[in-house]
Each structure stands twice: as structure tokens, then as C-alpha cells.
Design a protein around this nucleic acid. Sequence first.
DNA 1: GGGCAGGTGTAAT
DNA 2: ATTACACCTGCC
Length: 315
Amino acid sequence: MATLLAEAAGVDLRRTLDSGQAFRWHWESNGAKPPIAVGILGRHVVRLTQDPGGMSPQGGIRLLSPDTPETRRAICRYLGVVPRAGHPRNAEAAFAADPVLARVLPHTSGISLLAQDPWEILISFIVSQNNNIPKITRSIEGLARVLGEPLGKGMFAFPSPERLAGARMRTLAACSLGYRAPYVRAAARLVAEGRLDLTVLSAMDQGSAREALLQIPGVGEKVGDCVLLFGLGHRTAFPVDVWVKRAVERFYFGNRRCTTGQIQSFARSRFGHLAGYTQQHLFAYARAFLQAGTGPAGPADHGVTGGRATRVSAL
DNA sequence: GGGCAGGTGTAAT
DNA sequence: ATTACACCTGCC
């Protein structure tokens, strides 16, 4: 039991699961031992832990349960540590070429881009609009509790499109979705009725998939890009939320205000195929250190500002 | 209590 | 093509 996931070497479990891409993981303290991350993959309650790091940044990640070959494969895929095109394992090394990212990395090293279920991601990020993480989490857990399949020990699978599509509005309202409830149900109906096939979007080119996502009620540019990046495997999507916007403006544009479009074209040309991955690091850094009045100063305040011509050369 | 939180839809420039 | 505003809800 407790197989070490060799493929996940270099991944920081805490940083990854707490970096705002996933909403359903929670941590159990384990006495003197490292805490256990408990989450849900399909119909399995999965428990992970990370060995204490020695000289290295952090120790390896262990799958505590269910420790089966099937789950091992699934969790590695989920953690984004299955090597494939456009997803280099040594992406962090490329960050050294960018003075801003070189400053950010010590605080974000080990963050991985998760490969999550597109359906769950779609609904979760519709819920996330104009919302905060604690409330997003409560809403999603509420949906699972009321409409999801019970998995034992008070855990529930994320509800199916059919269940969500058939839910009464009052049921959704009870999950504190607020004005997002109609969006959620409309999106669920599109999927349940087969008018929206997320698998197809995954196979399409990123631009076409984005266009399709933007047709969904409650899905704008930011949510659409999150679905592309976190659920559909379009790893160059660059969701621009308020934090990423602040970070890019401050560190790369000399604190000048710019539009989402400007930021995205900048990200595309500067970060190339590492754009999505870079976004996750900038986001995590901004959340932790750009909060007004708290934390250490940002990279720019250390006398480092990004150049313009340099491109992060990543393979 | 008005403002805000990991935006979006809508209406009016 | 931009800009302004309302919006459920819970927590300062």
C-alpha cells in the first residue's frame, strides 16, 4: 500500500491542489505525519500524501488509497504528470529565462496543471464567476451532496449532467448559486441533451473550442479559458482574472493598465506553449503576495521588470 | 451598512 | 469596439 508515484516527482501537492484550479480537495491532519489530501476522482475517494522533503524541494507523492493500478494511472493523469506534447516536464527550467518568473518560482515551484473532468470544470467555473473560493466550494459541495452519487463517509460524486439538468430551481438555489443557478441548469441541459459534447471540444483546435464555450450562458472569456485550460487540455489557454491581470500589469507593463486582449496576446507571444502553465504560477503568486498591504513585495519591487523582446525559450 | 469577491449579460455610448 | 451597471450571497 501507499505506492510512491514516481511520475509525480517534483510536484508540490499542497501548492497544486490549493492553487484554485480544483475546488473539492480537502486536507486531513494525520497526527505527527504529513497531512492527507482527500479528493474524488470519478467514483473513487482518493487519498494522497506527500513525504517530507529532505534536501530536495519536497518529498514524493504517495497514493494511500485506493492503491490500485487503475487509480495510479488515473491520478497521474489527473496530476498532469503524464508526459505529452505541449506539456514539458521541465517547464520550470524555462522560467529561469524570464526575470519575473525567476522571482516568482521560489514561491510557486511544484505547481502542476491538473487535467480535470471537463464537465465538472465547466459547472465549477460558471459557479466561480464574481464569487470567492469559500463560497464556490460550499456551492459545489452542496450540489454534490444534494444531486451527486453517495460514495460513503459523507462524500459524494460530482452530479451528472442529467441530474443537474433535471434539478428544481429551488434545489439549486439551496446551494447558494444565486443568479448563477439558471446558468448552471442551462449548461447542464446542453450537455444532458447532447447539444454540447465536451469531448469534441477537447479534440477541436483551441480557438474553435473557445468560440463554442462562449455560446454557453454564464460562460464568458475568463470562465471559457479556465474550461479550456483545466478541463479540455488546451494548455496554452491563458485565463485572465483580476489577479493575473494585476500581476501582468505590474510585472510586465510597468504597472500600466491594459485590456484582457492585450494581456493575452502578450502572454501568447512571451510564454508560447507554456502560457497556461505560466498563468497558474502568476495566479498563485499574485494571490499570495499581491494582496494589498500583505506579504512581501512583488518582483518589480526588487528592481526587476520584464523586457519586451525576450521570449521564454522552452524547447 | 456599503463594498467587495478568481465575471457575465445587457444596454448605451 | 469600449464602458457602465446590476447581480445572489456571505463576510468584513
